[in-house]
Design a binder for these strands. Structure first.
Lengths: 337, 337
DNA sequence: CCGGGGGATTTAGACGATTCAATCAGGGCT
DNA sequence: AGCCCTGATTGAATCGTCTAAATCCCCCGG
């Protein structure tokens, strides 16, 4: 009835449990005839290894945790894809957890993962300086920050967000915009504030640019739409003529709101998003966006983790940084005279 | 160095391991003073429960596997969201696995989940009659089919796909279309063929409708674009005037191809998708789509599973079926004379 | 014929948490 | 003083797998 254990397999094959274990782990040291008998027994009983027992014995599991801010965001699914591809090569399983930009959920997932004694954790944290992260590391779970730069003793994989902000800002300013909105949030999140710093820098260099900041709690389509309505309702005189949004979901929502409000994109409102998700190109007005190498990020993060797990001791933490690209499409392809 | 075990905690608190375990599991039977001492010890040592050991002892894990066809598809992330919400209430963890419509990957994930002795598996299988599924059940892992109807002894949660197909078909036919394309795939997948059956039925009833079928391997944006190009290249005389696509990703890709080819939607080509994902409404031309209650599906599936796990014995397998709705938007809002 | 060598197999002890039967310490009652 | 009861705590066995050390067996060489 219950799943058979190695013991039943051994009994049926007329050998000891040790031999069965050897067949499973070092088949070459077992005599061919015996090996065959054991394998037959395994098949006949439908034996399936118990990962919990292996894990307990080995002291380490074969799972890696990946905690992301929003699984529904294609950027993160791409990232997960990359991580999973590499994990597969290392005979490792990825457990994807969705924190939904909520520190409480994030904490809950971290607890679960630690209890499961995962090999390590890849995380896009709500707050990169969260003491829980370092505590985790101190207690022995390797952590790699994803899409965030680690300052202290951690590995991290990130994209130069300030550069991303500068790219978007420069593009909009050169297109003649003087009132620009930056929309993202929460500002406490490193990536959001870095992108802001980027665009702020170039705005200040240009001198005459009026940069308005709008904060949201969560970066989803719904929130983008809401901010869009709010901005569309401003008097045309003071209303920004361009918006840079900290991710594409926000941008898509924002774009919808423009359509509803009857504002033309890019004529009345230029839009630049971030991440360059697949849907950006398929939007009502194809969306300009700052592209990040999502899959590469995931792959790279997993690489660092595996390195740390295997080298254990003599491992130096590294910070890998990628460069973003600006992809200009119709939503910002209009030069103001 | 290594994570401390219950033994170190006990030693430091000057009690036996049994008492520590009691503090963790039935604190009320432990004398307050002792309890306090143990809790202090736990905190001081940074003790974290070892889930593998608990699991091994308990004989059952606290994880549920969810295997979906495509995590990048918002339909499935919504579904996962629903499942996770209920899991949380049952103090259970969901492990999301992405089969990418690939039976091999699917099999790999099933193996992993079984080795982990998960509580149960929720799956949108590539092939509902896959013998591996029933084998899994026979060996003791409860399985609930999601977005598929189970015939045999399994629980399932699904949406009436034939009805969905009929809704889309009727709508297009009543709008005056006589040449209609149905695009989806692989046709061997139950939901794809059910939707086809639905539209075929109403097309036959109408009598004069020419229904053309196009098969794809995977239902993603890229494939939709490819089929779109192919159809746009047909001579206008024989080219369908409407397309019903088996999911919204396909439809979005298809829509892009129309734009590129210079065909106007809905005038030259009406489009109806399936799933009504968030992006459908945000598309270049807002997409008509057959809506499925994704989150509800996930929740419901998890409900059935928990029921089966708890009732163990006297549990009757059930097939829950939801009704889809047709959401008409601009992409099909044009009546041919 | 005996000892030794080497390959094949077995044995036994972890790994960490849980649980239940057994023990223990006190207090109250006769 | 002796006894019992109760509530608190302990001890030991258990879950399934792995591995290092021990044992077994057979054959070969001296």
């Amino acid at each position: 009835m219950a799943t058979p254990s190695i013991k039943e397999v051994a009994h049926r094959a007329g050998v000891s449990v040790g031999t069965v274990s050897n067949v499973l782990n070092r088949p070459w040291i077992v005599a061919p005839a015996t090996r065959q008998r054991v394998q037959d027994s395994i098949r006949a009983l439908g034996f399936v290894r118990n990962e919990a027992a292996r894990h307990l014995r080995a002291g380490r599991s074969r799972t890696v945790g990946l905690v992301v801010l929003d699984v529904a965001n294609p950027f993160f699914t791409d990232l997960a894809e990359g991580a999973e591809a590499l994990a597969y090569e290392h005979d490792t399983v990825v457990m994807v957890c969705n924190s939904k930009t909520d520190p409480v959920r994030e904490g809950h997932h971290l607890d679960q993962l630690e209890q499961q004694r995962v090999l390590g954790i890849l995380i896009t944290p709500f707050d990169s300086n969260d003491p829980r992260l370092t505590a985790l590391v101190d207690r022995g779970t390797p952590v790699v920050l994803v899409d965030r730069t680690a300052d202290r003793g951690l590995c991290s994989v990130s994209v130069d967000d300030q550069l991303g902000g500068r790219l978007a800002g420069t593009h909009l300013i050169e297109s003649g915009h003087r009132r620009i909105a930056y929309i993202g949030g929460p500002f406490s999140m490193q990536q959001v504030s870095d992108r802001m710093t980027g665009i702020t820098t170039v705005a200040e260099q240009a001198g005459t640019v009026d940069l308005q900041l709008f904060e949201v709690d969560v970066m989803g389509v719904v929130e983008g739409r809401a901010i869009g309505e709010q901005i569309a309702a401003l008097p045309p005189r003071s209303r920004p003529t361009a918006a840079f949004l900290a991710n594409d979901l926000l941008a898509l929502g924002f774009l919808q709101a423009m359509a509803v409000a009857g504002l033309r994109v890019p004529r009345d409102m230029a839009i630049v998003g971030y991440d360059d998700i697949d849907f950006a190109r398929a939007a009502a007005v194809p969306l300009s966006s700052v592209r990040q190498p999502a899959e590469m990020l995931g792959r790279s993060a997993m690489e660092l983790l595996q390195e740390e797990v295997e080298a254990a001791d003599r491992h130096r933490h590294r910070q890998v940084i990628f460069q973003p690209d600006l992809i200009v499409r119709e939503s910002s392809a209009y030069k103001r005279s």
